[in-house]
């Protein structure tokens, strides 16, 4: 059974969760799935031109050149060897391949944050400027508060004007404790204060915000590893999770971001934000392909509960099929 029919079967009954994906990814789908459909309709049989157009659709979804060429080549191969000429069959094969390339490059991952048995669990949140770190932190805090966890925030972005205030406003709305530092102070010392507070107040989940930094700035990346060191000195095994936030509109630079942050912080996951725009987030596939870091959560809208665990089936359903 091809993946498309599998997905159609799996979500044939109106599933609450998948409809959130379907809704959030409406715009992405309009651009991706309908393009694939149109392509299949215009050709009675696949040929050179067909594969070229397929290549275009994938690249325009930010899947990345090398992965795209790889995908298209294996399709060509398969088409020749097995004599598959039907466009819709080829498209199904493509989706299967995308799925395989995602799953093969990373082991099975539990998306949800796994809490440590004893003491606070620490989540460090990193990323380049403007990807939506603070908003994502608020959404994550909300998610675990709803499950009865005691959540607190640490305002580690002492650099950007207004960053601490932004997080404070969220903390107020969520009525959860927050530890802040001085403007332009050392973020590592804020992290230290945060860890201390968490231990003394029986906090379950500490989420540490950090300043946005471009991954090629060596001094800022060094600062990040210092924050990490301070955290692990204060709480054993911490940070238990380090999430890199990536904007869905990011192009091929997303891979460079993931690899640079992976080098200094041992990323345990990626959160893709702003998937509710027209971008297709093809960078998800590229990153998994090249680095093996899994996407754990996905931001599908502006509301507090618009953060979902990443589920490849739902993502593909949202991207390809919809309601």
């Amino acid at each position: 059974m091809g993946l498309i029919s599998f997905l159609k079967n799996k979500f044939s009954k109106k599933d609450d969760k998948s409809s959130k994906y379907d809704e959030g990814m409406k715009k992405s789908r309009a651009a991706f799935a309908s393009k694939l459909d149109n392509l299949a309709k215009r050709y009675s049989e696949v040929n050179q031109d067909y594969f070229e157009e397929l290549e275009q659709i994938l690249i325009e979804a930010d899947v990345g050149v090398s992965l795209t060429l790889e995908l298209v080549e294996s399709l060509l191969d398969k088409s020749e060897k097995e004599g598959i000429k039907e466009p819709s069959k080829i498209n199904e094969e493509l989706v299967d391949l995308m799925f395989v390339s995602y799953v093969e490059n990373g082991s099975n991952i539990v998306n949800d944050i796994s809490f440590s048995n004893e003491g606070p669990t620490v989540l460090l949140v990193v990323g380049v400027n403007g990807v939506g770190k603070t908003t994502t932190i608020a959404k994550l805090a909300y998610r675990y508060q709803k499950r009865g966890k005691k959540v607190m925030l640490v305002a580690g972005d002492t650099f950007r004007a207004g960053a601490t205030e932004q997080l404070q406003i969220w903390a107020e709305r969520l009525s959860c404790p927050i530890v802040v530092g001085k403007e332009n102070g050392d973020p590592a010392s804020v992290a230290y204060d945060g860890m201390k507070y968490a231990k003394e107040n029986n906090i379950d989940l500490v989420i540490v915000d950090t300043a946005g930094r471009l991954q090629n700035k060596a001094n800022l990346m060094a600062e990040l590893s210092k924050i990490k060191r301070v955290i692990s000195r204060e709480i054993e095994g911490a940070p238990h999770e380090t999430f890199l936030i990536i904007d869905a509109t990011t192009g091929q630079n997303g891979v460079s971001q993931a690899s640079a942050f992976k080098d200094v912080t041992d990323l345990t996951g990626i959160v893709i934000t702003k998937m509710d725009g027209t971008s297709k987030g093809g960078i998800i596939l590229s990153i998994r392909d090249e680095l093996g870091v899994p996407v754990r959560f996905i931001g599908l809208g502006e509301k507090m509960d618009d953060l979902e665990e990443f589920d490849l089936d739902k993502y593909l359903h949202g991207l390809l099929i919809g309601e």
Binding site: A31, E60, D62, T249, T250, G251, N253, Q257, G277, S279
Partner: peptide, 12 residues
């Protein structure tokens, strides 16, 4: 326009 933006930047 963010220098890091991908293929969708033109549509935007």
């Amino acid at each position: 326009v963010d220098a890091m933006s991908g293929q969708d930047a033109v549509n935007v």
